[in-house]
Amino acid sequence: MSDDRPRIDYYFSFISLWSYVGGLTFQDLVRRTGAEVTFKPIDLLAVFAAGGGKPVKERPTQRQAYRLVEMKRWREIRGVPLTLHPKFYPADPSLGHRVLLAALRENRDVSAFAHAGLKAVWADELDIADPATLVRLADDSGLPGAELLRRAHDDPTLAAEEGALTEEAIARQLFGAPFYFFRDEPFWGQDRLDLLERAITERPAPVPFTPVA
């Protein structure tokens, strides 16, 4: 692997709406740029809480209404199926995150599974917390679903790893998902993918990110 291959830290959660909406577009960007992606599944509700954010149903009604407008708008722009009120949202994504982390420990390609987990919630109305659903999604993505599920249940270090990634996200001042980092420069939201690609292909000086004290 070349030392100058672009590397992206990708923070997401299976219950992140905008991680799903931009998921295929992000995959296209990765293919075009040859980037290496470090997948970092996080506890999104904990990140919200640390950054002063609120779960969807606790937000002001005005924001909830506008969110639906944006969902319809971006569903058309991205050309993806999208359910406005998914049946199993917000299910607990932790078991699915641990399945993904178990696959990463075996150096497996998790790109297809990552998108399948997002699509399960936001288009297919599947329960991402259901073990049988996770096995099927993993198998369909070319992964050994039953074995990875067993490890996700039995290996406590996977839960610790998810927790550490969440703490890392909070320390890096994240407040939502998806968040992409390239050369330590943050890009929040799937609607910043054009800016991320520009940063990779044109290599302007990174915009400094200085947390407010």
Rank of each mutant, 00 (worst) to 15 (best):
P41M: 00
G23Q: 04
L196E: 05
T83I: 15
K87E: 13
G163K: 14
S111L: 10
P81M: 14
P41R: 05
V47Q: 08
R75K: 15
D194M: 05
L149P: 03
S16E: 04
E125L: 08
G142Y: 13
A177M: 08
G176C: 04
G22S: 02
S94Y: 15
R192A: 06
E147G: 09
T38Q: 13
E202C: 09
P41E: 00
G117M: 03
T133E: 10
P6D: 03
R198Y: 14
E125C: 14
L137Y: 06
A65W: 02
R31C: 11
Q173N: 15
A114V: 15
K57E: 08
Y10L: 04
G34S: 04
D9S: 05
L68Q: 12
G142I: 07
A205G: 07
P144V: 06
E167W: 02
V21T: 00
Y180N: 07
P86F: 11
K40P: 00
W74E: 00
T38C: 12
E197C: 07
L196D: 02
R183S: 01
R7K: 13
E70Q: 14
L193D: 05
D92N: 15
A120I: 00
W74F: 11
G79M: 09
L143Y: 06
I15Q: 07
A50M: 05
G23V: 05
P144H: 04
G96F: 01
R98T: 03
G79P: 14
G176N: 08
D155T: 06
R78Y: 13
I128F: 10
G23C: 00
Q64T: 03
P208W: 10
L195A: 08
L193P: 00
Y11F: 12
Q62C: 06
L100C: 08
Y10M: 03
I77W: 10
I15T: 12
P55S: 04
E197G: 02
G96Y: 05
L148G: 00
P41A: 08
A171I: 04
Q173E: 14
E58S: 12
L137A: 04
R172I: 06
I128Q: 04
V47S: 04
M71C: 06
G145V: 09
P6W: 06
S94A: 15
L100M: 15
L17M: 11
R151A: 14
Q27L: 09
W18D: 09
D43G: 13
T38W: 09
G79D: 06
A120Y: 10
G52I: 10
G23A: 14
P186K: 00
V135N: 11
A35Q: 07
A213N: 14
A177G: 07
Y10S: 06
R172F: 04
